[in-house]
């Protein structure tokens, strides 16, 4: 679906964790036309001198009810303004924007990895994968038990594994340390979170073949003809896809503000992304 300006009515707003909110909007056009990984650009009240829209991953979209949800943390004036919106308020949204996650039709086992608010980036993919009959493991990392995304908000079918930095719940350490236990099982992995986490995952994914001793057999997965980097078909074959974040201006590719450095030069998070195959990103440029 091409992007459009949509007037979305807030139908529910609730704080799921300290400082983290999920808001539901009635926006049938967005609910029907969006895919996991895409985002909307939301206009905040202009009375307060906020001149830019705010980009949010589409957390869930239900075409049957016409409801989409957004999951965000209050980090500044824009998100604080959002938390003050009331049921019935209409928000101006531009979307759906960006390119979605590309799942290989042959993939049976999907590994989803989220750090903190990165859950908002991969949450909808869990729904889509379950709908398509795939098996899903969600690895989630947070500071402490108080920041762990409630399992009740995930589909029942997914396996949910948690790591906390202070060990107050689940694995004591980074979520990336859990990945090696699942990399043999997974056909593909999808991640969203802090760039440092994504960088570590990209390094793990690059060494996966050797660790697992996977031979390159025939034309399967990358053998034979090479798809151009960044194309949908190349992404579909990639083991790891990441959803990147960058401060954003227009969100349609006009201002070139939201770039990350790719191996082929600057890439717009809003147009070429926000989802990239891990091998498209020049990870050495990311701190």
């Amino acid at each position: 679906m091409t992007m459009r300006l949509v007037s979305a009515e807030l139908v529910e707003s609730r704080q799921i964790l300290p400082g983290q909110w999920i808001q539901s909007f009635n926006a049938p056009e967005l609910a029907a036309g969006s895919r996991a990984g895409q985002f909307v650009h939301v206009r905040t009240g202009d009375y307060s001198g906020l001149v830019l829209r705010r980009p949010f991953s589409i957390n869930t979209a239900d075409p049957a009810t016409g409801i989409i949800t957004l999951h965000f943390r209050t980090v500044g004036r824009g998100t604080e303004w959002l938390t003050r919106a009331r049921e019935g308020d209409r928000l101006d949204m531009l979307g759906p924007l960006g390119r979605p996650f590309e799942v290989d039709p042959r993939s049976r086992h999907l590994l989803l990895i989220a750090g903190g608010l990165g859950m908002a980036g991969i949450r909808m993919l869990a729904d889509e994968a379950v709908r398509d009959g795939r098996q899903v493991v969600v690895l989630f990392g947070a500071q402490s038990a108080a920041h762990v995304y409630p399992s009740s908000l995930l589909p029942d079918e997914v396996e949910y594994v948690v790591a906390t930095d202070d060990g107050s719940l689940g694995h004591h350490g980074f979520v990336t340390e859990l990945v090696t236990q699942y990399e043999a099982w997974a056909d593909q992995a999808f991640a969203c979170g802090p760039h440092a986490m994504l960088k570590r995952l990209a390094a793990l994914a690059a060494g996966r073949r050797e660790r697992l001793g996977v031979a390159k057999l025939g034309r399967k997965r990358g053998g034979g003809k090479q798809d151009p980097l960044g194309s949908t078909s190349a992404r579909r074959k990639a083991f790891l896809q990441v959803s990147m974040e960058q401060t954003m201006g227009c969100a349609v590719g006009a201002c070139l503000g939201c770039t990350v450095i790719g191996v082929d030069g600057p890439q717009r998070v809003c147009r070429e992304g926000p989802v990239f195959a891990a091998e498209e990103i020049a990870w050495e440029s990311i701190a």
Binding site: G49, L50, V51, L52, G78, Q246, T247, M248, G249, C255, L256, G257, C258, T259, V260, I261, G265, P266, S285
Partner: peptide
């Protein structure tokens, strides 16, 4: 031109700063 290193835009009170660098 490849332009400047990211981040390239940020919001400021009543405005924004950009340093795209003529990409």
């Amino acid at each position: 031109r490849a332009g400047n290193a990211p981040p390239r835009v940020t919001e400021t009170p009543g405005g924004m700063l950009n340093s795209i660098g003529l990409q």
